[in-house]
Nucleic acid binder design. Structure first.
Lengths: 326, 326
DNA sequence: TTGAAAGCGCTAACAT
DNA sequence: ATGTTAGCGCTTTCAA
């Protein structure tokens, strides 16, 4: 029952609680024999400091929150790993929360992070405009967004240049002979969705192709949305000769639709898509894929966050990493 | 900076801190006018109680830890949802941690849960024998395992009857005419892997088929493991006429191997597998699938945990839910 | 270098 | 019904 306190250790080691605290925290101002006695007592009793009590004094915690819009998406999993590695190197640990792109859940978890006084939060916001991060910022808890931006750009962000990546993918499709490229867009509130749509338009323009409203269908970044959107697009007459899907899960859905229609790619129709999908059935070799350095995104986001936690002050920084077409 | 304390609220509302505390906690023992003044002050100041300070008094937190062996696996995602729903209904929130089947990571997160004094922990242990949950149990933090069991069965567990489900799947394959069923097993340390293997053997015996050592290959519950294991099995002479894969991710890998070999299922070879995979490319209709009630597993695990947290005492309970073959 | 004492923000006993 | 007081476990002055 964690009944062992610093006092117990102090008594056993025959020193004051303050000395135990010193041994535990700022290293070498304690005589060696005392230090040894304290360490022995700690081990013997199995003492573990109470982090709540410590926080009450120091206002410092070592837990970071990662609030993510869809944990199932391997995109995020790799990111989490990057963040964890950076965090644990600095003595921090990371807890995760899954919002399912749901603003209420997002708010609830932000509240948890605030209530628990987490040292900092990495967030992939479900909406660019409607956000609850003030709850954190008010209390001085730094926030870094990953992947997506926030409209009120007062926080750091780490991600890729979605506009350019999308544009390049379109150009690649055009090079492959496509002239009627359907685009499956993401949720209107998410900046990556807007950016990728904008890149799609740029790509068309750069290729001298007209933009056609009917060729753009919005999905929800989930499998089902991709499936439905692809079905809508494939009903067009004339049919698109390529599909550009703005995230990995929707791509799975789109592929299902194509299969249901008895269409093969790349022979019947060309595909391009955002995000790695090596985890699924080797679709990669048959389509144009935009890969993001997800591990690196997580790592850098965490390092930025740690600098903020350490008190560094600099204008909100936007780290833009390179996405690669392959 | 969260400088607003209960004292500030008390002063503004012109009451004592204790009254504010009472308003916040045990409802109706406060006169209505005071209560209103307090609520107004709280709102006006944007006061939020400091949960660490509260814990120091009450020894009660409202955060549950979910320590999961692979967050990417949709199996767990749905489980998390079940747990979250049950938790939030009771006023608890849930934080996640991903161990990647790595015992060190598992221990680290268990330490975090203990240090943060989480109210309880739901765990899918990476090993049945080597576990660190004593860190929790010693401190009186209840633990419920999901999916997998622990050898030292002193904690509650919610899962399915893996032995029976595996056996039924084998029988189903035999009914389809299979006589040489390859089995891709899971990591030796995980109880579900052992149970499923044992079910496989039972199924063979029940069908009057011999057990052959060469037909069993172990994987790691990840995609790559499935791919490699399937490759090994398909090299056998004579080739298996069916593959039974003991989890979903390995099934993806196995399917990749089959594709590489130019084999189709179910025409060339039959497949059976554990765990839902509707999220992937509609493999489901072409193989025998064992589905687990994942949401329900999470929900019941959480409810069990909440009862333990509430102080109920009963012998370690093993809740076995039904897996369905479809 | 070490110890004594105060106090972080809160709630539970005890008074009133 | 409300206020006063003490103390949860820790760290950090301040003294010695």
């Amino acid at each position: 029952m964690s009944r062992i306190t610093i006092k117990d250790v102090a008594e056993l080691a025959d020193v004051s609680p303050a000395t135990v605290s010193r041994v535990l925290n700022h290293g070498p101002t304690v005589a060696e024999d005392l230090r040894d006695r304290v360490m022995a007592a700690i081990r013997q009793l199995g003492y573990r400091p109470n982090s709540q009590a410590r926080f009450l004094r120091t206002r410092a915690t070592t837990v970071l929150g990662l609030i993510i819009s869809d944990i199932t998406n391997p995109f995020f999993t790799s990111m989490v790993r990057g963040a964890e590695d950076a965090a644990s190197k600095a003595g921090y640990s990371v807890v995760l929360a899954n919002t399912d792109e749901d603003l209420d859940k997002e708010r609830r978890y932000i509240e948890v992070a605030a209530a628990e006084n987490m040292a900092g939060v990495i967030l992939s916001p479900a909406s660019a405009t409607r956000t609850s991060i003030e709850l954190l910022l008010e209390r001085g808890v730094p926030v870094v967004t990953v992947d997506r931006r926030l409209q009120t750009a007062k926080v750091d962000r780490v991600g890729v240049n979605n506009v350019r990546a999308a544009q390049e993918a379109v150009i690649r499709l055009v090079d492959q002979g496509c002239r009627r490229i359907g685009f499956i867009a993401g949720p209107a509130e998410v900046t990556t969705a807007a950016d990728r749509l904008s890149g799609y338009k740029h790509g068309l323009r750069a290729s001298g192709l007209p933009f056609s409203r009917e060729l753009v269908v919005r999905g929800d970044y989930r499998i089902e949305g991709g499936r439905a959107a692809a079905a809508t697009l494939m009903r067009l007459d004339p049919r698109p000769d390529a599909l550009f899907v703005s995230n990995n899960l929707m791509t799975l859905g789109a592929v299902m639709t194509l299969r249901d229609l008895g269409l093969s790619y790349p022979s019947d129709i060309k595909l391009a898509a955002f995000d790695d999908m090596s985890w699924t059935l080797g679709l990669s070799d048959t389509m144009t894929l935009i890969s993001q350095p997800t591990y690196e995104i997580g790592r850098q986001a965490c390092e930025l966050l740690l600098r903020r936690i350490a008190g560094e002050r600099f204008p909100p920084r936007h780290v833009v990493l390179g996405a690669t077409l392959d």
